[in-house]
Nucleic acid binder design. Structure first.
Lengths: 210, 210
DNA sequence: TGAATAATACCTCAATCCGGGGGATTACGT
DNA sequence: ACGTAATCCCCCGGATTGAGGTATTATTCA
């Protein structure tokens, strides 16, 4: 009955109860098996080569090293392991930090039986399980502000600035004189209230102008 | 029997067959109704104030204005309308362009009955429906490269550069001398093979160094 | 323990960039 | 007809940057 190819799942979660209930749920599936569970990242990382997990369910709030730092270290050493963050928070900063750290999914602790197993299946299929709110948060992060104070040309030039181009390169690329490029950039700076290229890029990213 | 609060869905799709089949599927639901369908963006935009859609299913490849340009214009005028891109392509550039333009979901034309309705439900819940591959693509886009050639300090400084900080500001923020900041930046430039702040930022974003 | 790497700091010099003005023409759309 | 956008030019001074060095401490790791 024990399938030889069950996906190896590791739990990192300091709440004993959640650890137990998640273990039960995961083990109830024919496709997954919990190889181990830890209450902190340090131990998990220490034994990762022995446990050889393919998927890690990682809590964010942990004693000692937090789940985001832990994910970073794990993905650093073992990039093939898929990490799913499990948390109570859907705070946007934490989400993005976790994703940057290398998480491939983001579910909440309130996840029920089905949601948890669906998330694991999604990961197996090469997907990225997320709650509705997280998905929207992530997608919204891409949206460019349609109410930019900049004109089309200015936006175009800001784009080139963000690509690291110099005044000269911009003027050549757009077939305009260097002075014109300068004028546009002066206007961009004044509209964005900045006074350097990098500041302009920072503001552009912040306000999703490009 | 006709519920008064069905969500108003608009179709923009040049393939007559798909338009018909999607219309049938959407109308089969108690929660949605197709208010109109067009074979091009121009017409859709022209009549949008009359059709008053809450959700638009938008093809990307269209005669005349493409679906990405169309989405941009629609979100510009009516930011409250949710646009779901419907396409055969899962090409990464197109996906990101569509998301930047303001799309809130991204499904493929091969979407069946269930997938289509699930996507609409997801949108209604404030989510962002995506296929597994798209979701992973989007998530992967956040991941920071764990094999950065930069040291911790250099990464820290690159981060500050990307925030638009000057040498002086960086040195003050990190409690080091201006000269040291300069040295670090020189090393960053040499490792990234660039020679300006904006180029460094561009490369950093490209290679997900920060 | 020794070597390598990282982080710190200083020097010089030329090129670029920025800010702050200014003025001017053409074109397009309302 | 007026405003906005896009184009181009000028001056200038000061700040910043980039490129070339050298050098001293920590720390880390083999």
């Amino acid at each position: 009955m024990a399938l030889p190819f069950k996906k190896r799942v590791l739990l990192v979660e300091d709440d004993q109860e959640i650890r137990n209930s998640f273990t039960l749920i995961v083990n109830s599936s024919q496709k997954f098996t919990v190889v181990n569970s830890y209450s902190n990242c340090e131990e998990a990382i220490e034994n990762i080569n022995r446990d050889k997990p393919e998927i890690i369910l990682m809590d964010i709030e942990l004693p000692g090293m937090n789940g985001i730092q832990g994910t970073k270290q794990i993905k650093d050493k073992s990039p093939h392991i898929d990490v799913i963050m499990v948390t109570v928070y859907e705070d946007s900063e934490l989400v993005f930090e976790a994703l940057k750290a290398g998480a491939s999914g983001y579910i909440t602790k309130s996840a029920n039986y089905m949601e948890l197993l669906t998330a694991l299946e999604e990961i197996m299929k090469g997907g990225a399980p997320m709650s509705s709110r997280i998905a929207r948060m992530v997608i919204d992060n891409f949206h460019v502000n349609p109410n930019s104070p900049l004109t089309k040309r200015e936006t175009e030039i800001l784009q080139l600035i963000s690509e690291g181009k110099t005044y000269t390169q911009i003027s050549e690329e757009l077939f305009i004189s260097k002075e014109t490029a300068k004028t546009h950039i002066k206007n961009i700076y004044s509209k964005l209230q900045v006074n350097s290229k990098s500041e302009a890029i920072a503001k552009a990213n912040l306000e999703k102008l490009i």
